[in-house]
Nucleic acid binder design. Structure first.
Lengths: 135, 135
DNA sequence: ACAAATGATACTATATTAGTATCATTTGTC
DNA sequence: GACAAATGATACTAATATAGTATCATTTGT
């Protein structure tokens, strides 16, 4: 089971790179430094752009730049963009309301765990990652 | 993202059923009560048998029975059987030791979160699920 | 011997993740 | 204005994991 998918992972690396280097960074520079396939990196950056995390400019001196302070970009937020809401709890029997009592009990427990995980994932952000990386 | 897969889920339901009903239960009874496809249920029970959670007897009055006390079968244990070790932290760049400082920082954080989740998943077991379900 | 159960194993289908390819659009420079 | 260098949009393909099926072998009670 993978909790963090590659696109989320690459996105976080790219964001850390951008935040700790120049204002505007080009795809090619990210590719060269992070070793991610170019078209995949482009796709990821475009998604970050659409989501309002990055801004972009086209043309000769174009590239991507952070649109918010690094501390305002959380790991949780990035995961939501690329993976949807990462649910720990999910009900499988098709019916809307789970008819299985034991399972419902499980679901409740999972929801509690999930809540804690989300809280922690919201606390980690690009700024704190960079800071921790330098230490 | 699915944290608990269907086979884990079905396995937990089956175990709750067996633990709260008769000593020995047949596949057909589980199928009738849980609404899981028969061949899939069989596969799951066979795996639980191989893993030492269930015991089985063949033949006319055969079926499956719990091999341990219900309180000794944790959700974490079942997830490990069907999903492998559910890692929240995982390093993507192929190299053994992750060369990206920010990512390593992330990894450390994820490991901490993971530790907490595992502890909680170990505390939930078949007995506690049944008890909670009855309340 | 036979029926009713599980054991073992190989196969298929579906969904998700990962990645590619291509053409369109914008922008700075000559 | 032409052109090069960047991103935008979109559709496609490949690989992997999940979910489920099919079949034959083996055991056991009557």
């Amino acid at each position: 089971m993978k909790f963090i998918t590659r696109d989320s992972d690459y996105a976080l690396r790219a964001l850390c790179y951008i935040a700790s280097n120049r204002e505007v960074v080009k795809v090619d520079e990210l590719v060269a430094n992070l070793g991610v396939p170019r078209p995949f990196m482009r796709k990821i950056l475009q998604k970050l752009n659409k989501s309002g995390i990055l801004g972009s400019t086209k043309g000769q001196h174009g590239g991507f730049r952070l649109k918010r302070p690094a501390a305002a970009v959380s790991v949780f937020g990035i995961m939501r963009i690329f993976q949807g809401k990462p649910e720990l709890s999910s009900c499988f029997l098709k019916k809307e309301v789970c008819p299985e009592r034991p399972h419902c009990a499980l679901r409740k427990k999972l929801c509690l765990i999930e809540k804690g995980v989300f809280r922690q994932l919201k606390e980690i952000n690009i700024a704190s990652l960079i800071k921790a990386g330098r230490a």
